[in-house]
Simulated scan of single mutants.
Amino acid sequence: MVVKKKKEIQVTALTVCHQDLETLRTLADVERENLASLLLHCVQLTDGVSQIRYVKQIVPLLEKADKNGMCDPTIRSCLDILAGIYLSLSIKNPLKKVLASSLNCLPEFFLTEAIQSFTSRLQKELNTTDLYSYRKVIDNISSCMENFKLGITSVNNLLENVLYFLQKSLIEITEENRKFAGNHIVQTQLMNDLLVGIRVSVMLVQKVQGLQRINSNISSSPTWQSMCELLSIFTKFLSDDDLLRTIQSTSGLAVILFIKAMFHPPEKIPDLFASLFCGLHERPGVVCALLQESLLC
């Protein structure tokens, strides 16, 4: 009998930038009892598993401060640093989920400050112009929507920016993919980034309340315009044979969900589909197959 060895879970230690580290050192109290002291001790550890224990102490410590009715500058700064820590962690790092789970229990007294911090930090992420950093930002948008109250609120607050970022990133990743035609290693990564970007767009329209039934009367708004641009991108992907079939089928799902969210009444949707795919009339069988495949996803 062969006994399979359990796969060890890798927990990469969380870190902070030099500026945040200096802030924590400045704010840590002599008694080492405030939140800054806790975070400072946590980030100085090199073992991610050990850090989990300290992350779980954040909310109990804040609950004590809540009883005193205090949200002093030290706590505000620490909440901002926590937002930075969360966004810096890899989506596969268990610490990210542990931190999100802890912050979901944040006392209501601190929610406004925490939301402001997360929104501000996420905005900085969305401003990146480095194409090879797009995947990290896309992953952060995804993780923010995964049972994380502060995250989903921040995404809602930055909805226009998030939609524009997804639009920009999908266009630029597609262009980069064309440049590296024949380089299978680079293209594999870019195609994967493209697929994840489409999936996050799908998640966005499913989970963000403001997009589930967007009012067509605001067709001049940036949100509506970005959704139209994304819809156009997904439609082009459907007929691009240079892309992986999974990208095409996921794009089909995105088209369906975006149309359901954007157009009312539902009775008009079949006519819209007909006009939307008029440019693909030469290959109706392929489109129908992809749409059918999308519905099964």
Rank of each mutant, 00 (worst) to 15 (best):
residue 178 R to S: 11
residue 274 A to C: 09
residue 143 S to K: 12
residue 117 S to M: 06
residue 129 T to I: 07
residue 154 S to K: 02
residue 264 H to D: 13
residue 186 V to D: 00
residue 258 F to D: 01
residue 203 M to W: 05
residue 23 T to L: 12
residue 114 A to W: 10
residue 129 T to W: 04
residue 148 F to S: 08
residue 272 L to P: 01
residue 196 V to N: 09
residue 83 A to E: 03
residue 51 Q to C: 10
residue 281 H to Y: 03
residue 34 N to T: 11
residue 95 L to I: 14
residue 101 S to L: 13
residue 54 Y to G: 01
residue 291 L to W: 03
residue 60 P to I: 03
residue 189 Q to W: 03
residue 116 Q to V: 10
residue 220 S to Q: 14
residue 152 I to R: 10
residue 37 S to T: 02
residue 4 K to F: 08
residue 212 Q to I: 07
residue 107 P to G: 02
residue 62 L to T: 05
residue 46 T to C: 08
residue 64 K to S: 14
residue 206 Q to S: 11
residue 267 E to C: 05
residue 204 L to H: 07
residue 88 S to Y: 05
residue 128 T to R: 03
residue 254 A to V: 10
residue 15 T to E: 10
residue 291 L to V: 07
residue 205 V to L: 05
residue 139 D to E: 15
residue 270 P to E: 01
residue 90 S to E: 15
residue 287 V to L: 09
residue 56 K to V: 06
residue 249 S to I: 08
residue 172 E to K: 07
residue 296 L to D: 04
residue 131 L to M: 10
residue 178 R to E: 12
residue 2 V to M: 02
residue 284 P to C: 04
residue 190 L to T: 03
residue 75 I to H: 05
residue 98 V to A: 15
residue 232 S to F: 11
residue 281 H to T: 06
residue 109 F to Y: 14
residue 188 T to D: 14
residue 42 C to Q: 04
residue 250 T to D: 14
residue 265 P to F: 09
residue 55 V to H: 02
residue 53 R to T: 09
residue 102 S to Q: 15
residue 32 R to I: 00
residue 242 D to P: 00
residue 228 C to D: 10
residue 116 Q to P: 00
residue 251 S to G: 09
residue 92 K to I: 12
residue 108 E to G: 14
residue 108 E to N: 13
residue 278 C to D: 14
residue 91 I to P: 00
residue 181 A to S: 08
residue 189 Q to Y: 10
residue 202 V to Q: 07
residue 220 S to C: 11
residue 216 S to L: 12
residue 268 K to I: 12
residue 43 V to D: 07
residue 183 N to P: 00
residue 183 N to S: 04
residue 249 S to N: 02
residue 147 N to Y: 13
residue 248 Q to T: 01
residue 169 S to W: 05
residue 101 S to N: 15
residue 267 E to G: 01
residue 136 K to V: 11
residue 168 K to L: 13
residue 249 S to H: 01
residue 264 H to I: 11
residue 8 E to S: 06
residue 70 M to C: 15
residue 206 Q to G: 01
residue 130 D to H: 13
residue 284 P to H: 04
residue 220 S to G: 13
residue 227 M to I: 06
residue 260 K to W: 05
residue 158 L to Y: 03
residue 75 I to D: 07
residue 76 R to I: 13
residue 95 L to E: 11
residue 133 S to E: 15
residue 161 N to F: 08
residue 247 I to N: 09
residue 56 K to N: 12
residue 189 Q to E: 11
residue 152 I to G: 07
residue 289 A to S: 15
residue 204 L to A: 10
residue 146 E to K: 13
residue 295 L to A: 09
residue 49 V to I: 12
residue 84 G to P: 03
residue 247 I to Q: 01
residue 90 S to H: 11
residue 20 D to Y: 08
residue 115 I to N: 10
residue 288 C to L: 14
residue 256 I to R: 11
residue 283 R to A: 02
residue 64 K to N: 13
residue 129 T to L: 12
residue 93 N to L: 07
residue 41 H to W: 04
residue 296 L to N: 06
residue 170 L to S: 03
residue 249 S to P: 00
residue 108 E to P: 01
residue 232 S to H: 13
residue 214 I to M: 04
residue 250 T to G: 00
residue 263 F to C: 12
residue 216 S to G: 09
residue 49 V to G: 00
residue 188 T to E: 14
residue 281 H to N: 08
residue 34 N to G: 06
residue 28 A to S: 14
